[in-house]
């Protein structure tokens, strides 16, 4: 069709759009510089250790850390499994609760007025201060960890989902109302999909909070998990293993964040589409 002529510029044989290479290249190059910087830091660290500027029991060299990582790997893997299970369970519940609160406060103004200030105040309570209490109440098992993670993750989820819902365009809502849409249909077609972007940004924050939350609660009481391992190697002054576990915690967080990004790309395909400049 004549009107669609210029549109096909970016379309392949299947008619689906292919993005111009220009928009892909900068993203690939974006990885180079942080990696170069990281390598430089590790090299500098190795130099400091080799030159014995800092005693090796205080700052083990990267080579030693790597060696510890390899030798302790089976143990680290076992502890990681526990931490990941705690993080995932707490995260799932925290996200669900946060989502529920956001829906409730968006739907009922009374709920918003009654709950929102309290939720904000609840965030001023330091996590480290309540963790021992949770251990006292819920013991050394999975439960106190999950509860702590729920406490740290539901807040960012609630706040960003709520603002996502509230950003829904009133004219679009009017349009759907004019179609005879019910409140639930407006939520289903406008508010919820419109807030997906906020959901994923919040989820990325929640993932790192969840892992850190799990480790902190393991420090304060537990039998297994990366936090427990960490307190053990710390009391043994095995700083190489200490660094090894820090690396593992980072990697776990990064993997979980990567999963979130993948899910986002899959569930929000429209955000990765290049706008065409064709005119009718």
């Amino acid at each position: 069709m004549a009107a669609r002529g210029p549109k096909n510029e970016y379309a392949d044989s299947t008619g689906r759009s292919a993005r111009p290479a220009r928009s892909v290249r900068p993203a690939r190059h974006a990885w180079v510089w942080p990696i170069v910087t990281l390598i430089a830091i590790i090299l500098a660290w190795q130099l400091v250790s080799t030159a014995e500027l800092v005693p090796s029991f205080m700052l083990p060299s990267p080579v030693k850390v790597a060696a510890a990582l390899v030798s302790e790997f089976p143990l680290l893997l076992a502890h990681s499994r526990v931490t990941i299970v705690e993080s995932a369970a707490g995260l799932a519940l925290g996200v669900l609760i946060g989502f529920g609160f956001a829906v409730l406060m968006d739907r009922f103004d009374g709920a918003y007025r009654a709950l929102y200030p309290l939720i904000v105040i609840s965030q001023t309570i330091p996590t480290v201060a309540i963790a021992p209490l949770l251990v006292l109440w819920f013991g050394y098992g999975l439960l106190p960890k999950v509860v702590l993670i729920i406490i740290v993750t539901f807040f960012p989820m609630t706040v960003s989902m709520l603002s996502g819902f509230r950003e829904a365009d009133p004219e679009t809502i009017d349009l759907l109302r004019s179609m005879g849409a019910s409140r639930a249909q407006i939520f289903r077609h406008v508010k919820f999909p419109g807030a997906l972007g906020s959901f994923f940004s919040a989820l990325r924050i929640c993932v790192s909070y969840a892992v850190v939350g799990a480790v902190i609660s393991e420090w304060l009481g537990g039998f297994e998990g990366l936090g427990v391992y960490m307190t053990r190697v710390k009391s043994a002054f095995a700083f190489d293993k200490m660094f090894a576990v820090i690396v593992v915690i980072s990697v776990v967080s990064l993997i979980l964040m990567g999963i979130v990004s993948l899910a986002e790309r899959r569930l929000m395909p429209w955000t990765h589409i290049k706008e065409r400049t064709s005119e009718t």
Binding site: A3, K7, P269, W270, I273, R276, E279, T280
Partner: peptide
């Protein structure tokens, strides 16, 4: 997706 269409479309 709508972003792929011109204003007239």
């Amino acid at each position: 997706y709508p972003a792929q269409l011109s204003g007239g479309m």
